[in-house]
Computed example of a mutant assay.
Amino acid sequence: MTTLLPFVSALIHRQTDSLFPLEYNQNLIESADLLIAMEYFASCLTHISGKYYAQHLNQNDFYHSDKYAVFLYYLAHTLYSHNKIDCATQIYCLNKALHSVDMFYEVKLPKIFMLTHPVGSVLGRAEYSDYFCAYHNCGVGSSKKNGITHYPSFGQGILMYGGSRVIGQCKIGDNVIFGANAFIIDTDVPSNSVVVGSYPNHRILPNSHNVIKDIFGLDSNP
């Protein structure tokens, strides 16, 4: 891990300097912050098996845009947790600039999640669980009822295909797939379901697939 630190540090500083050449202070990102984010990143990757996923962190992981977007989220969130808000904001903006994805550093995404060409996706405030996967143009966000803001909650093993949306007071069970362009608002979904169509004409169907096995490549549920 530490052998990658100089490379990752140089990469982050060069990219961020290109966006914020007058304001950015390289000393704001300390080695300790980078190492924590890299540890989160490495741990996440060990729970994903596939063509582009090796079990040991290497430089190629930082050149794979889907994975790099995950790392930048972990870095921004780590900086935020250390009260380095200005720097966290710049890393958050860097992620948006590079990948057109919105994952705000205050949002607590799970320890194990995966992005697949996530251009245009906004993963907002919600209660997330491990083994969450989002494709392009997905949306997770809030709704308001009687002046109260409500957010979704997700069980383990969630797959959001392109264009799907989960908004508001939605309690989503385990092993749930949202089909392309599926949309729900303030609607609960039981475990082992597939959601298709748009609210209020959406449908909830039985799910014969296993998200953790089929998407994350694990032989069985953790």
Rank of each mutant, 00 (worst) to 15 (best):
M1D: 10
L4M: 09
F7M: 09
V8A: 12
S9L: 06
A10E: 13
A10R: 08
I12G: 05
I12F: 03
T16K: 04
D17R: 14
S18W: 00
F20T: 11
P21I: 07
L22K: 10
E23A: 15
E23W: 09
E23C: 12
Q26S: 13
Q26D: 11
L28A: 15
L28N: 14
E30Y: 02
S31R: 07
L34E: 07
L35R: 11
A37I: 07
A37M: 08
M38S: 10
E39L: 12
F41Y: 14
F41N: 07
A42H: 08
H47D: 11
I48R: 05
K51A: 13
K51C: 04
Y53W: 14
Y53A: 06
Y53T: 01
A54W: 01
H56V: 15
N58S: 15
N58G: 14
H64C: 13
S65Q: 14
D66N: 13
K67W: 04
K67G: 07
Y68R: 12
F71G: 04
L75P: 00
A76L: 06
T78F: 04
L79P: 05
L79R: 04
Y80T: 05
S81Q: 14
S81T: 14
N83Y: 10
K84C: 12
D86G: 15
D86I: 07
A88G: 13
T89K: 13
Q90D: 07
Q90M: 15
L94G: 11
L94Q: 09
N95L: 10
H99W: 04
H99A: 12
V101L: 11
D102E: 10
Y105F: 14
E106R: 12
E106Y: 11
V107Y: 01
V107Q: 02
K108H: 06
K108F: 01
L109R: 03
K111E: 13
I112D: 02
L115T: 07
S121C: 09
L123N: 09
L123P: 07
G124L: 02
E127H: 13
S129I: 02
Y131E: 03
F132M: 03
F132R: 06
Y135W: 11
Y135M: 12
H136Q: 15
C138S: 05
V140M: 03
G141S: 03
K144S: 14
I148D: 09
Y151T: 11
G155Y: 00
Q156L: 00
Q156P: 00
G157D: 00
G157C: 02
L159G: 02
G162W: 00
G162E: 01
G163Y: 02
G163P: 06
S164T: 04
R165K: 13
V166G: 12
V166N: 09
C170R: 03
I172F: 09
G173P: 03
G173H: 08
G173E: 03
G173Y: 03
N175T: 03
V176T: 06
I177C: 07
I177V: 15
F178N: 07
G179D: 05
G179Y: 00
N181T: 07
D186Y: 03
N192H: 12
V194S: 05
H202S: 04
R203F: 02
I204S: 10
I204R: 08
I204W: 07
L205K: 15
L205H: 11
N207Q: 06
N207W: 05
N207H: 06
S208Q: 11
S208D: 12
N210A: 03
N210M: 01
D214S: 10
L218N: 09
